[in-house]
Amino acid sequence: MDLDYFKLIDRIVDLNLDERTIMVEAQVPEKHTIFEGHFPGFPIMPGVLLTEAMAQSSGWLLLGVLKFKRMPFLAIVKEAKMRGFVSPGELLTIEAKVEHEGSGFAVTKCKGRIGKQLKCSAEITFGLAPFPDPSLRVHMDALAEKIGFPLQALAHD
């Protein structure tokens, strides 16, 4: 998890394009200035960052479903629930599933866990747009490789 660059997902554990599901890991750093303020004496991951982590997990799933032809942009977050504290140093596992693929948008459902304990969940809607700039596509390709996106999964139809 690179909080400074808002890259919250470290590794794709599983991507199933037939089932339209993904599982990822996000290692919460031991130390970061965010935890100095949120909160002094009781550092926990802010709910907005847990929500963003769920959104990024869904984003990777949708990039796979869309075969990197479109970029998902966050549009609506519903039913975002912070069900328990997530502390520095913990390993967050996030699962996401495509709930609906509409015309120009998609909806996912996500759950974040520490171990077996459910910590957060949400229903998230994305607008799906052509990559607005070629450099963004290049960046996403490089990031995909870094986090172990199974590019071979895109080969089959």
Partner: peptide, 25 residues
């Protein structure tokens, strides 16, 4: 347009269809 995304999702689900919003637009 944002609210319409939400409406489209609900309509798609309720009727079991995929409204071709992009084609219409």
């Amino acid at each position: 347009s944002l609210d319409f995304l939400d409406i489209a999702f609900a309509i798609d689900k309720a009727f079991g269809i995929k409204m071709p919003l992009e084609k219409w637009t």
